[in-house]
Design a protein around this nucleic acid. Structure first.
Length: 558
DNA sequence: TCTGAAGGCGCC
DNA sequence: AAAGGGCGCCTTCAGA
């Protein structure tokens, strides 16, 4: 059973729809949280236009749901998927739901969505777009039909369910927040940079000292080391041959100024990206609440908006500290993408190589390459499309040992070069490439060469798309399975009062768990990883080992 | 004074 | 250590 929610102004409407699309009843809802709480025990699938617009209000009222159908996210998948290409939904002109998917417009009205606030604020009045009930029901019906008529509705249905539960998890993780110690963060910053300057814009003492040292060693008293132009000029004037100021290039050079310069760059980056200003803006009441954007990447990976949550430097992870009496359970899927490739291509040899626990050692044991480092390099090259260097040279060895796996990524690359669409295991398809490889006699040799390079570049994208996208699907299934298992564990208590997900990073999760439940949670996370494998790849005997740690600081894991 | 591109670098 | 894929966000800087 589905319950479709929509609203005009402040009035919420609820429509019951059967799985055959029959509208059973419709009525006005007064008091949304109470209504949802009353009907949740039936475990309907709640249908709404955008989880981020509906669910936070419910969570603030301590109402949680098990299942939803996020029309905005599912619309994007169904319109692009090769499996649902023939549907009316995919064939029709782009409309309001597409603008909504791109984040540009609110649905059905053509006005901009309210900007996300930069600070998490429970009191902030929420501006909501009106969502016409008929439009929401019509879109749900189009999606239902597109799914039913698709070339493989069971795979696609699984993807839509996973994408939707991901949206619930994103809202719940933001609500719960990542436990963050302002004190510990300040200690890290002060040790590395010196104490916080009292005047905004001044450099902390250690950074200031390094800047002076660099100016003196380069004999450039006015130099601003934060300015690439300025710095490049000063380096060249000092006789240092370099065409850029990138750290890895500077590392090749020999000059007394290089070492303090590299240190300056590291610390300057820390200050700018995760210094005291970041702490003021993003950590409140002992929690970091990033704004996750499910489906924010074309491959299906999540993005975040503000706070840079997916780029948390290892340097400051020591500030992630559980509440007193709680632990962090940190789990990271080992060698996820190579294992995904092995499974999706059903390459028995590569699956077998991963069975022992270290896929790269397994590749060495098979005799394909000589060292673990070579195995890793070769696999990265296969998934990213390396053509040069050691990685490129190792590829043929890999192709001989694992023909099915390598053929799969090569085929995806060739398809992309021809401008064709490729798809993940559950049916998320790549965007169509713009005029790939189309060049005629009128082009100059330089233009043809540029066109070929664009084609190859798009091929590297589609090559990686199938692996990265399927890994993202695995991660969604993993988290969904963790969430269900944690619920069983919570036994009816509010989810933040027992073990709950607080962070997600592509192939890694962090769970905030009471001390006494931490070990059981770790076990459940490992079971969920195997279930995710079954959800994607059925009976194929592929394993997804985890690196698991129960810790008192995030940086103590690994 | 604002805006967008470029250079650079953090994460997977 | 990068290369080869995907991102977000900082500062600087040129142009409107």
């Amino acid at each position: 059973m589905f319950i479709v929610l929509s609203r005009v102004g402040a009035q919420v409407m609820a429509t019951r729809v059967t799985s055959e699309g029959v509208h059973v009843s419709e009525h006005a809802v007064n008091g949304l949280p109470r209504f949802v709480a009353e009907h949740e025990p039936e475990h309907p699938r709640w249908v709404w236009h955008d989880t981020a617009e509906w669910y936070p209000e419910l969570l603030r009222s301590r109402v949680r749901i098990q299942r939803c159908f996020d029309l905005r996210l599912c619309h994007t998948i169904l319109r692009n998927s090769a499996l649902s290409q023939s549907s009316e939904l995919a064939q029709s002109e782009a409309g309001a739901w597409d603008a909504l998917g791109s984040g540009l417009l609110s649905p059905l009205e053509g006005r901009p969505t309210p900007a996300h606030s930069t600070l998490f604020d429970f009191e902030q009045p929420h501006v909501r777009p009106a969502v016409d009930p008929l439009e929401v029901l019509a879109e749900f019906e189009r999606q239902r039909v597109a799914l039913a008529q698709s070339a493989d509705s069971s795979r696609l249905a699984r993807l839509l369910a996973a994408e939707s539960v991901g949206a619930l998890i994103a809202a719940e993780m933001r609500f719960a927040g990542l436990p963050w110690s302002v004190t510990a963060h300040d200690v890290i910053l002060t040790e590395m940079l010196g104490s916080r300057p009292t005047v905004e814009g001044d450099r902390p003492s250690k950074l200031q000292y390094l800047a002076e040292q660099i100016r003196s060693l380069l004999d450039a008293p006015q130099l601003n080391p934060d300015s690439p132009n300025d710095l490049l000029r000063a380096l060249n004037v000092a006789g240092i041959q370099t065409s850029s100021t990138r750290a890895w290039e500077l590392k090749q050079l020999k000059h007394p100024a290089i070492e303090p310069l590299l240190e300056f760059k590291k610390l300057s980056r820390l200050l700018a990206a995760n210094g005291w200003n970041w702490l003021d803006a993003w950590v409140h009441d002992g929690r970091f609440r990033p704004d996750y954007v499910p489906g924010g990447v074309v491959t299906g990976r999540w993005a975040t908006s503000g706070g840079g949550a997916l780029q948390l430097p290892h340097l400051i992870r020591g500030a992630v500290i559980p509440d007193s009496g709680w632990k962090l359970v940190v789990a990271d899927a080992s060698q996820l993408e190579p294992r995904i490739l092995a499974a999706m291509s059903a390459d028995r040899g590569m699956v077998e190589a991963g069975a022992s626990g270290d896929l790269y050692e397994g590749i060495v044991a098979s005799g394909a390459v000589e060292t673990r480092a070579q195995a890793k390099l070769a696999m990265l090259g296969a998934m990213y499309g390396a053509t040069t260097g050691e990685s490129g040279r190792l590829m043929p060895k890999l192709a001989r040992a694992y023909p099915r796996a390598i053929r799969m990524v090569e085929d995806a690359a060739r398809a992309g070069e021809r401008g064709e669409v490729v798809s993940t295991q559950l049916g998320r398809s790549s965007p169509r490439g713009a005029d790939i490889g189309t060049y005629d006699e009128s082009l100059t040799p330089a233009q043809r060469s540029a066109a070929r390079e664009r084609g190859r570049s798009w091929g590297r994208f589609t090559r990686n798309f199938i692996v990265q996208g399927t890994a993202a699907e695995w991660a969604l299934c993993w988290m969904a399975s963790i969430r269900i298992r944690l619920d069983a564990f919570a036994d009816g208590t509010w989810f933040t009062d027992s073990a709950h997900l607080v962070f997600f990073l592509h192939d890694e999760v962090v769970i905030h768990a009471p001390v006494e439940s931490a070990d059981a949670v770790a076990a459940l996370v490992a079971e969920a990883a195997q279930e995710a494998g079954r959800l994607l790849f059925g009976a194929l005997p592929v394993t997804f080992p985890l690196t698991l740690a129960v810790v008192d600081r995030y940086d103590a894991a690994k």
